[in-house]
Design a protein around this nucleic acid. Structure first.
Lengths: 341, 341
DNA sequence: ACAGAGCCTGCATACGTATTCAGATGGGTA
DNA sequence: TACCCATCTGAATACGTATGCAGGCTCTGT
């Protein structure tokens, strides 16, 4: 049988009123400590749990956050970027730590995903996560904002985008890893990653890459660059295109998955990594330490990121001031970056 | 401002009663088509959405499923087995397809996770997912069952476990891939994976492995086996232990991640995969196609699995009969299995 | 003209909780 | 004794929806 025990049942059994039960269970000091304990004992015994629907209805809140993933529509169903998995894990934990529940949903950009929140009181706030065309839903973001929906974006702060965002400093990350390659003595480069406005994170990494090259007197415009969104397949294809035209000393990939695809493509031509071509990635996903060779990459602190996202969203919900946050990334040096002699 | 439009507002504006609004919005044939359309138009205009709390309270359901991940407690925070990610994706999609929401939560075995459901009406049913010690929560499963909680386990059907389960045939999978290695001419083997009762999936793969060996006149007990739960690190360590003692023709790993760790360990000794030691995995996670060499592995149809889990859970909720399901796996042949000449 | 049958709509209520307001009790003080 | 304050409890109500029931209207057939 389903749980049909209500606060009235507890009240009856305890010889008090329903109000007292409600108060006791929420540890209100209004009710005598002794009575409180007695009621709690009975509630535990009857295995009573507050009906969330009734409670939320009364309290006009949901104690739930919604996490909306915007997936790259080109990627197939079975793969999700491990970086986001990591974020999912930390967001879940941070949410639980705050006593909130988490509603997870994968969205296509063209879905009517506002409904998820607007089906009101399903969630108190939204976390938006995903690479891909932020520009495409700028309109929706504006709508969300004008409706007073509380939401936070993961990504780079951007004046063109409504709402607050928390993200890591992709320009700096791109700069650091390219700088490191330059220090290894590499002279010719290529970049794998989408640099259109629809992928602002990747574009930012590209900016950092260009900046580092320029500072070393190299002309980024002389270097090849191919668009690729996120998967191993994308990286494989883009790298193949690059190798069709030339063989750079180093290829900077805008994600680890693409770097893994790139290595695969390089090897398919009989070339060696990093001796013939160095490769670096971004994200420091778990397998990156175990690829052949292990990847030099940039780590984003997902644990902290999840925590910040949740905590700041709650601030937003409580009408406390919140501002954009840009987190510094960390360079992880392994073997794939090689050393030109 | 938050959404404070209620069905009464719509009713007022449409000049009808609240009941009519409620009926119209749920497309009841009881209300005139014309009135219905008019009400819907007004609702859309006012951007009205049904308050889920009120609706669920009234209907005594939540239209929500809860997905409980039981993570290997030894794995660090940032990594989740990509196989489960894949399941998460397909479960999310299947749930949405049924008009349900999905509450996701990561649990430790010792958490009081029953509360998640018992905080009643938060979810109509539970999906339990995870490797790890099923045995440890057998007791809790029994409790769930006796409380009439509707839940489904991902995993092998097991008479010792309460509740219905849906899983893939791990014995068959282990058999198939070992069989394939035998056909390649390998003679000496080792197995990496936990074969204690606390990891029934891995144990089942081991059973299939032993069965194939025995059928070929080999004695599985002569072969090495080391426990390892799931991560690359686990696989690396277990493989190192194996190589300390001998160098088998082939190592069968109970997951792709462990196989990737194994390859890394083999290479660290200056040995080649698959020439010196062949390696196979299990799960067919995305990177397995891009590892060096690409992994021979066993695929579980996660898309179907997620669909089956959700659909059968809904059946359970609707008091329809449901029985255990065992799905056949599929062998994916790539390079890592080599060929002994 | 009237009965009866559809067809549609509104009234009233229940879902289970949280909270406001009013009251009850008991102890202390003048 | 009379009064007040502190402390606790209970009655009543609202949250927003869905639905059983009753009733009104229109239309048909006699």
């Amino acid at each position: 049988m389903k749980n049909v025990v209500t606060s009235f049942d507890i009240a009856y059994k305890a010889g008090v009123s329903q109000s007292t039960v409600s108060r006791a269970l929420s540890d209100s000091p209004l009710v005598n400590k002794k009575t409180r304990d007695r009621i709690k004992a009975i509630a535990a015994e009857l295995n009573y749990k507050v009906d969330k629907n009734a409670s939320n209805l009364r309290k006009q809140q949901s104690k739930t956050l919604a996490l909306l993933f915007f997936e790259d529509p080109t990627s197939d169903d079975s793969s999700i970027n491990p970086f986001f998995v990591s974020m999912l894990g930390s967001i879940t934990k941070a949410t639980a730590a705050q006593g909130y529940d988490l509603l997870v949903s994968f969205q296509n950009l063209n879905d009517d995903w506002q409904a998820l929140y607007e089906d009101s009181h399903k969630a108190d706030g939204l976390i938006l996560l995903g690479y891909g065309s932020y520009t495409d839903y700028e309109l929706k973001l504006s709508q969300l904002e004008s409706q007073g929906t509380r939401f936070l974006r993961w990504g780079a702060p951007d004046v063109n985008h409504p709402g607050i965002s928390i993200g890591s400093d992709n320009v700096l990350g791109g700069y650091q890893i390219t700088q490191h390659l330059l220090e290894q003595g590499h002279k010719t480069f290529a970049f794998v990653g989408d640099v259109t406005p629809s992928a602002p994170e990747l574009k930012a990494r590209f900016e950092g890459y260009k900046q580092a090259l320029t500072e070393h007197g190299l002309d980024p415009d002389q270097m090849l660059q191919f668009d690729a969104i996120s998967t191993e397949q994308d990286g494989y294809k883009a790298t193949s295109h690059i190798l069709d035209r030339q063989t750079p000393n180093a290829i900077v990939c805008a994600s680890d998955l693409m770097a893994i695809g790139a290595i695969s493509a390089i090897r398919a031509r009989g070339l060696k990594v990093p001796q013939d071509v160095a490769v670096v990635g971004y994200d420091n996903i778990p397998v990156s330490a175990f690829s052949t060779p292990p990847l030099t990459t940039v780590q984003q602190n997902t644990l902290l990121a999840g925590k910040l996202l949740v905590e700041n969203l709650l601030k937003l919900i409580n009408n406390e001031p919140v501002s954009d946050i840009l987190m510094p990334p960390e360079l992880i040096t392994r073997d794939s970056c090689g050393r030109q002699v």
